[in-house]
Design a protein around this nucleic acid. Structure first.
Lengths: 130, 130
DNA sequence: TCGTTACATTCGTTTCCACGAATATATTCT
DNA sequence: AGAATATATTCGTGGAAACGAATGTAACGA
């Protein structure tokens, strides 16, 4: 099944790389959270239940692909979607996978928001629904 | 970066599995070919330039996911899209990856059609644009 | 300045999956 | 029935990528 090396430089290579990049539970969850609002790493940490290093690694991959972009605010680094179109892909994939829009929306808010970041707990931050 | 085992049973797991499944050059190409017309394995062989076994393996994966379905006609087994919606995902991914619709269409017809299957060469088969 | 918080990056390991090769099955032809 | 064609499946292996741990860096506070 010789996947020609040159295939990766071809259109099908670019398409498949993008799909494989987001073809991972953690990244799907991160993107869905960012679909609603920009979020700092510690926020994503509590929402996804993953550790900081792991989140950072996923964010690095998404960042290198240009899907998300960081901007610092004090000690926190906030990430936002650079390519909102990616959400539409996730929604269609969800439909195909038998995931209802309701369950999809749950993913972004899942854990009872115990995020310790200053933007989350006290109401002094931007637009956070915590 | 603990991808919780239970994540795979959750919505994000289903979504990511589907995306990872099609996140591969050969499968993207196969699906795009099937988007136009159903095709036998030997046809996909010549179009993609891959060997028979490899094609069959990819088709098996796509079949188990319910994306394509086989039906036999003589010695040949033809595959068709069970979920045409998948093409829309590929198109959006292509757009995000900077692949123009024109280049996308090329993928399905790429190699000068030298498919040896009876449905391709002589005009005795179904709807083939070869 | 020192410590602490928040995040990034690197490194080594392990796991997963595509791939190639070999083999099996089904269908037609002679 | 036997051979040839078309496709499916199994198995072993290699490479890539996720993962965990450790360490590095930047900003703020005391």
């Amino acid at each position: 099944m010789e996947t020609n090396v040159t295939n990766l430089e071809q259109p099908e290579g670019h398409i498949s790389r993008l799909l494989a990049l987001i073809g991972q539970p953690a990244r799907v969850q991160i993107l869905l959270v960012l679909a609603h609002e920009e979020a700092c790493v510690c926020h994503l940490e509590t929402v996804t239940g993953m550790r900081q290093a792991g989140i950072s690694q996923h964010l690095m991959a998404l960042r290198k692909a240009g899907l998300v972009a960081p901007h610092r605010s004090g000690r926190n680094v906030f990430y936002r979607l650079e390519r909102p179109e990616i959400i539409s892909i996730l929604q269609q994939a969800a439909a195909l996978a038998g995931v209802t829009p309701a369950k999809l929306a749950d993913l972004a808010r899942r854990p009872v928001c115990g995020c310790p970041c200053p933007q989350c707990n006290p109401g002094k931050g931007p637009n956070f629904a915590c």
